[in-house]
Design a protein around this nucleic acid. Sequence first.
DNA 1: CGCTAGTCTGTAATCGTTCTTATTTAAGAG
DNA 2: CTCTTAAATAAGAACGATTACAGACTAGCG
Lengths: 139, 139
Amino acid sequence: MTPVARPFSHAIDRLRAVWLRPTRQRLALAKLLFDGCDRHISAEQLHGAALAANIRVSLATVYNTLHQFTEAGLLREIVVDAGRSYFDTNVSLHHHYFYEKSGQLVDLSGDMIHMEGIPLHSPDGRRVSRVDVIVRVDG
Amino acid sequence: MTPVARPFSHAIDRLRAVWLRPTRQRLALAKLLFDGCDRHISAEQLHGAALAANIRVSLATVYNTLHQFTEAGLLREIVVDAGRSYFDTNVSLHHHYFYEKSGQLVDLSGDMIHMEGIPLHSPDGRRVSRVDVIVRVDG
DNA sequence: CGCTAGTCTGTAATCGTTCTTATTTAAGAG
DNA sequence: CTCTTAAATAAGAACGATTACAGACTAGCG
Ligand SMILES: [Mn+2]
Ligand SMILES: [Mn+2]
Ligand SMILES: [Zn+2]
Ligand SMILES: [Zn+2]
């Protein structure tokens, strides 16, 4: 049995594992992001959440951190609309509903859609890094 | 047998069919867009192509026209990256390779990928308007 | 400690897109 | 053809998410 979570050291370990210094800002953002439930969050939203939790952090650092986490594989960036991008704390293989009107992004369980014929390489032999499926809903 | 194309009246007919007045600008842009080969083009690129062809048209009109054509079903808008969107002259069912580095978008033949389990409605019953599949290539 | 590379902040710059308003034009009526 | 009117266009300002920058701060280490 896994013991009760020790969120602080969890976050530290997570950062150490990907060679990012566990600074005050990165720890605080990691705790907000990886608190248990998966989420799709924009930089502005995370910045707002941080301020609401009395964590002083600049928007620039939120952007830097989100990109560093993404590069390290702790997050996945999802682009749904020109000029809006979300960061997904669920990095397992899954796809999304996107509600055009509200801008909401919702998970589609990973095994709901089966795809065949997805190439592993591009026509000129380059490796496919990711396949994004977005199911767009008008309302 | 269809006679040899008369591109000018072609463009006029195409616009009339979707209730858009065949103005000088819309006709010129339609001719650039629908000249035979399918393409994925940005607003800036189309504007550049127009200027290169000695067609005086403002960037604002290019944006308006692209959106009107999209709404009319003559184009399909594809978002690949925050802050960049492409317009596809191929509105038939197909998917795309996206080359992250060069920003190039390439068609994947429509019958190459088979998908099963794509929902027709969202969890709360709204109609799915479109499913976008983007195969991302690093190089 | 005290050094140094790495990080953070606040703000300015960027850039694709959208908005605004005056001007021009398509198209139908007479 | 001329007149009228609604629709469309041009030009540039405004917008908003993101990125760049330069100076201040700090984690990690000897
Ligand atoms: Mn990004
Ligand atoms: Mn658009
Ligand atoms: Zn997700
Ligand atoms: Zn295409």
